[in-house]
């Protein structure tokens, strides 16, 4: 059993108890993905599996045979940051930095979900494609806790990136 992590095939762990999170951190040394609660209650462990964001702490590693997993390390390195990472730095979208990789993985997936037209709990017309408002971004990021309270700055970073290069336009009227 193997999974592809950031483009490289790795054999899955022998211990069936090992979560995807612990496998990434302990066996593969990919410690950018964080353990904040280990129970799907904080989002610090968010990674992308086949492009979808999940809590890696609640997923057994052996259930990922054949999956393509992307972690923060694949999104951009310190000397080659992705636009979202650069925006987080510029807007101070973090303080202690512990929830940050999860926030960025989550935000990355969020942009794909918006591009696919997924609705959220605050979408006015659930049958229609969502209009990107601040409330939409806040709702869609709510699975990622930040105890330092950098939320305003995270949303500002996300708005900047979506406005600059996302397929979607921020609806300024609706955001106001």
């Amino acid at each position: 059993m193997h999974a592809r992590v950031n483009g490289t095939e790795h054999p899955l762990p022998h211990d069936s108890r090992r979560t995807l999170l612990d496998w990434l951190r302990e066996d593969l040394g990919l410690t950018g993905t964080k353990k904040g609660c280990d129970h799907g209650q904080c989002g610090a462990c968010t990674v992308l599996v086949d492009g979808r964001r999940i809590n890696s702490c609640l997923s057994l590693a052996q259930l990922h045979d054949g999956d393509a997993i992307e972690t923060i390390e694949a999104i951009g390195s310190a000397d080659a940051l992705a636009p979202l990472q650069r925006a987080f730095v510029a807007h101070d979208g973090f303080q202690c930095g512990y929830c940050t990789p999860g926030q960025i993985c989550s935000a990355t997936a969020l942009m794909s979900e918006l591009a696919e037209g997924w609705a959220s709990a605050v979408t006015e017309d659930i049958a229609a494609a969502p209009v990107v408002t601040r409330a939409e971004l806040q709702e869609r990021m709510s699975g990622n806790l930040c105890r330092c309270g950098a939320y305003s700055n995270i949303i500002a970073a996300l708005e900047e990136v979506i406005a600059a290069e996302g397929p979607l336009r921020i609806d300024a009227e609706a955001s106001a």
Partner: peptide, 18 residues
């Protein structure tokens, strides 16, 4: 900007368990 920012946003800052 925080000088350690690039490390934090790329998951390269080493926290204690790591």
């Amino acid at each position: 900007d925080r000088p350690e920012g690039p490390l934090k946003v790329s998951g390269a800052a080493t926290y204690s368990a790591e």
